[in-house]
């Protein structure tokens, strides 16, 4: 069984410690969403796991190999930073080949996987930000790895490509570890199984996303008929009857009452993301 283990890891740059005594163990292949505000230490955490930063104290281990010292362990990791990290003067094909020559891999496979065939002869510097990001993401799929570290992989990418990237990662997470940092709380809920919350360089939460409890749930209900009598505590906002409840179970009761009261339901939607509370706490 594969295992990523961080034991009391503190790391940073120069004398400045950015992440403090982080401990976590990952053994289940899945998508782990790393959330945290700007400057929380997400990138530092990724760089430490990627073996680029030497921990000030503690150890980052992958299958009992120290990630800073073991080249073999580092070769099992893919790291996508927030920069494109590709030679801008090259064509898309040559830029990918540049890395394939260094670390091995199949450029043709990446061109197909991320639909880059149309761009392959274009100069990387001439691409749009979204296209650049797509190529940049492509380089981590040149060869298979066991652990994927992705620092905001869908930033600057249009929704369609964003979804394609997320679909690839979801497929990948069936037998690989995927650590995915994001500011997008909806995206985090959509693809993540686990949540790793970092704040001020400290690990604040590490558990399944389904175990994240919101303090309150704001629900918008759209109906064909007037249900203000059935929902006296609701407010009408943009065509939705908005109710606030303390648990998801209460939502089921409300829906049940509405249906029994003759309401014709059109839509039921969660107006806030439960992770929002978590993020802002």
């Amino acid at each position: 069984m594969q295992k990523l283990e961080l034991n009391e890891v503190s790391a940073g740059y120069g004398a400045e410690e950015v992440i403090h005594r982080i401990s976590l163990t990952i053994t289940e292949p899945s998508i782990y969403v790393v959330l945290g505000p700007n400057g929380a230490g997400k990138t530092t955490l990724f760089r430490t796991i990627g073996g680029i930063l030497k921990p000030f104290s503690g150890q980052a281990m992958f299958d009992d190999a120290d990630l800073f010292y073991s080249k073999v362990a580092r070769r099992r990791i893919a790291y996508l930073s927030h920069l494109n990290a590709l030679p801008e003067e090259m064509t898309v094909f040559n830029a990918l080949k540049y890395y394939a020559d260094i670390e091995g891999g199949d450029v043709e496979h990446v061109l197909d996987l991320l639909n880059l065939r149309d761009l392959k002869d274009r100069k990387f510097s001439s691409l749009s930000q979204g296209q650049k990001k797509r190529v940049s993401v492509g380089k981590i799929f040149l060869r298979e790895r066991d652990l994927y570290l992705l620092d905001e992989p869908t930033s600057n990418v249009d929704p369609k490509i964003s979804k394609e990237i997320r679909d690839i990662l979801i497929k990948l997470s069936k037998d690989k570890f995927v650590l995915y940092s994001s500011h997008n709380l909806y995206e985090a809920r959509e693809i993540g199984t686990y949540l790793i919350l970092i704040k001020n360089g400290e690990l604040k939460f590490f558990d399944k996303i389904e175990n994240v409890k919101a303090r309150q749930y704001r629900i918008g209900i759209k109906t064909l008929n007037d249900v203000s009598q059935l929902l006296p505590e609701s407010k009408l906002e943009n065509g939705y009857y908005v109710v606030t409840v303390d648990s998801p179970q209460e939502i089921a009761k409300i829906v049940n009452n509405l249906v029994q009261g003759g309401a014709e339901l059109l839509e039921l939607r969660e107006l806030d993301n439960p992770l929002q509370d978590f993020f802002e706490e």
Binding site: R47, G50, G51, I52, K71, V72, R74, R75, I77, A78, Y79, S81, L83, A85, Y99, I102, E103, K139
Partner: peptide, 8 residues
């Protein structure tokens, strides 16, 4: 940075 992450 990417080269470092590939094991170099």
């Amino acid at each position: 940075e990417y080269l470092l992450s590939t094991g170099l």
